[in-house]
């Protein structure tokens, strides 16, 4: 990478940070349309089985959606009969340890840690705690950033996990 373009300015840092907080809020509040508006057409949304050398085209993932499959996922969530998210889980995600790399002139790679508290209200009335890290790839698009990649690495992804029907 060219050193002269690799530095992230404070303004850029704030912009990426604002985007990530906004994205987390839409996901936590199951605001599907607003969340979907943050996506680029080449979006990949991926939950591999945790850390490790998992390859998306070789190793089975917990979730691996391209843009069209993600549209199906959101359509399904909006039908009202996606039982695993009816009623929707109240959730709050804490995000920290933001680090940003530049991919190109107008693209960023952001890394965060997260802890997500999910009230599983569909069958158990119990709280699930999810923890891990996320990678976002973001692109300058018209006036704001858009997301074209989101990878969620759960610390327990390769172990038995409960249903994850919400947008994490």
């Amino acid at each position: 990478m060219n050193e002269t373009v690799s530095v992230i300015s404070d303004d850029e840092y704030r912009k990426v940070e604002r985007f990530i907080y906004k994205e987390a809020r839409f996901a936590d509040e199951s605001r599907y349309d607003e969340w979907e508006n943050l996506l680029e057409d080449d979006m990949i949304y991926w939950i591999p089985r945790g850390e490790g050398d998992f390859l998306p085209d070789r190793d089975v993932s917990i979730l691996n959606d391209n843009r069209s499959r993600l549209a199906t996922r959101i359509n399904q969530l909006k039908t009202g009969t996606r039982h695993s998210q009816e009623p929707r889980s109240p959730m709050r995600k804490i995000i920290s340890n933001l680090m940003i790399d530049r991919i190109s002139e107008n693209e960023y790679l952001a890394h965060v840690n997260f802890a997500l508290f999910e009230m599983q209200v569909q069958s158990l009335d119990e709280m699930n705690i999810w923890a891990g890290r996320m990678e976002y790839k973001l692109r300058e698009s018209e006036d704001d950033l858009k997301m074209f990649f989101k990878k969620v690495v759960l610390i327990n992804g390769d172990h038995p996990v409960p249903t994850i029907a919400f947008i994490i």
């Binding site: 089975v60 399904q76 695993s84």
Partner: peptide, 28 residues
């Protein structure tokens, strides 16, 4: 095969996520 399996089965799948919650309710 992989992509179709991921759609149907697993914690985030279009099908099994709903089967799981119905089973939970049935058991309770």
């Amino acid at each position: 095969m992989l992509r179709q399996g991921e759609a149907a089965l697993g914690p985030s799948a279009f099908l099994l996520a709903d089967d799981a919650v119905i089973g939970d309710r049935q058991w309770r």
